[in-house]
Design a binder for these strands. Structure first.
Length: 451
DNA sequence: AGCCTTTGACCAGCG
DNA sequence: TCGCTGGTCAAAGGC
């Protein structure tokens, strides 16, 4: 089975990587990287270099795709082609709340980088995390999203025409050659280094439709999964993890897929906690049903926060692996403290946060992880900047300013990193950068059932 | 005691 | 109108 052997090969690559480095080591390695040499920017391409497709060709497709989409501005008014929020080297043109841009942007600008931004303002209120493969228990969909690779490639915003979330090409990133668009659904393959599922957060964070993808925090390292992200008519965002080999061929047979799941079951058998409540929010299950459209039973959860309209549907395979999550509506409250009841113990979060920094073993992994951390830091800083705002309040676009990746000098990086760790260990950071406003609950499924 | 899950019943939308 | 389907309710019981 080709897919299995691919994954085995990947795992071997990971196993060959250096043992867990310390954050300092990571940072040191990171700082020794030549940003301008393209090592970093080519990382994703390098790690998908075993793909048969021509990378530039695919990128061209992506560009074409984007150009075909009549973009809208964040305010919903007509805008020139190629929404500026998607454009590299143009974030300054999109400043709103802060004429100088976010701290991340300022830092990046200072370092000579431009930061493409995600415009999440058009993202709607219902999120689907849908996986044709089962998400291993304890492996959060958000963790998948939080892969540095995903982050780095996550120039994502909903299609102006369909509302589906798609990922646009970004100048400094390398689209995996097997990236695909299909009905506004973009698939790509995060693959940035060793993943240790046992070290990942058990459970998952909400990947909120109003949440800048850059704001999604990483509790785990990158995965060899790929994702399909889609957003439909301001209602649903679909994030579709795939196995690495499924990326090579979307015609992946169901048999192969089942085998993949089986393999993953074995790989991730150590992760046993699949409680969907562990996304940081508290959920109450109010129903379960076997629906015809899915071979798996569907569970219905409500956010237990008073007056919070958020619901989610979770489908699990027989072995408890999550196969689909559909988020509906938006949280109108901050993320609750992490260690309450079903929340993750603070100490566990600490460890996980540290693992984020320690796990990536390759240079590229270091880079992505470090950059991710930087981006996360900016997210946090942005969040701090809006503290005190009514939880139900602000336009989402306020968070759309959050930068994804920034380049920093050594001091900044170290400072950011250590601050990040400190915040994590103090349990003071909110993992959710979203305070949504769109309460629309209509929804429509975008991706046909995986079966 | 409070909050959770479970589970059968009920309801609404749709063809 | 009827049957199917998906979503929700609410009682019961567990932790």
């Amino acid at each position: 089975m080709a897919g299995t052997s691919d994954r085995v090969s990947l795992m071997e690559d990971w196993m060959a990587m250096p043992p867990t480095p310390s954050p300092r080591t990571l940072m040191s390695s990171f700082l020794n990287e030549d940003f301008g040499s393209g090592q970093f920017s080519n990382f994703f391409g390098e790690h998908v270099s075993n793909k048969p497709h021509d990378q530039s060709e695919k990128r061209g497709e992506l560009v074409d795709f984007r150009e075909q989409v009549p973009a809208q501005s964040a305010t919903g008014t007509a805008a020139p082609q190629n929404d500026i929020s998607l454009q590299p080297n143009s974030f300054n043109a999109n400043q709103k709340s802060n004429p100088q841009g976010s701290l991340a942007e300022r830092r990046a600008s200072r370092a000579g980088f431009s930061i493409p931004k995600i415009d999440t303002s058009r993202v709607g209120s219902s999120t689907v995390i849908r996986s044709p493969i089962a998400i291993p228990p304890g492996l959060s969909p958000t963790t998948l999203l939080e892969s540095p690779v995903f982050l780095y490639n996550a120039m994502a915003q909903p299609s102006p025409t369909t509302g589906k979330l798609f990922v646009a090409p970004e100048a400094n990133s390398t689209m995996p050659p097997d990236s695909t668009f299909s009905n506004d659904v973009f698939s790509f393959q995060p693959h940035s280094g060793p993943a240790s599922y046992s070290n990942m957060e058990k459970g998952y964070n909400v990947c909120h439709q109003n949440q800048s993808l850059s704001n999604i925090h990483q509790q785990g390292s990158s995965l060899q999964s790929s994702f399909t992200a889609a957003k439909d008519s301001a209602d649903e965002t679909i994030v579709k993890p795939k196995t690495s080999d499924s990326v090579f061929s979307d015609n992946h047979s169901s048999e192969e897929q089942e085998d993949d799941e089986g393999d993953q079951n074995e790989e991730y058998s150590s992760a046993t906690n699949s409680n969907p409540a562990e996304d940081g929010y508290n959920w109450r299950k109010y129903g379960q049903k076997q629906v015809k459209s899915s071979e798996h039973p569907r569970s219905y959860y409500k956010c237990t926060h008073p007056d919070c309209p958020v619901k989610k549907k979770v489908e699990r395979s027989q072995d408890g692996q999550i196969t689909e999550i559909v988020y509906k509506s938006s949280h109108n409250h901050p993320l609750p403290p992490p260690n309450r009841r079903s929340g993750i113990p603070l100490s566990q979060i600490n460890d996980q946060q540290v693992h984020v920094l320690e796990k990536p073993g390759s240079h590229a992994g270091l880079n992505t992880a470090s950059l991710w951390e930087n981006g996360k830091s900016e997210c946090i800083q942005d969040m701090q900047g809006v503290e005190g705002r009514p939880a139900a309040g602000p336009p989402v676009s306020a968070y759309g300013d959050t930068s994804i990746i920034e380049s920093q000098d050594a001091a900044d990086v170290s400072s950011t990193l250590s601050n990040e760790i400190d915040r994590a260990t103090q349990g003071t950071i909110s993992l959710d950068c979203d305070v949504g406003e769109d309460e629309t609950e209509s929804k429509r499924r975008l991706v046909s059932p995986s079966t």
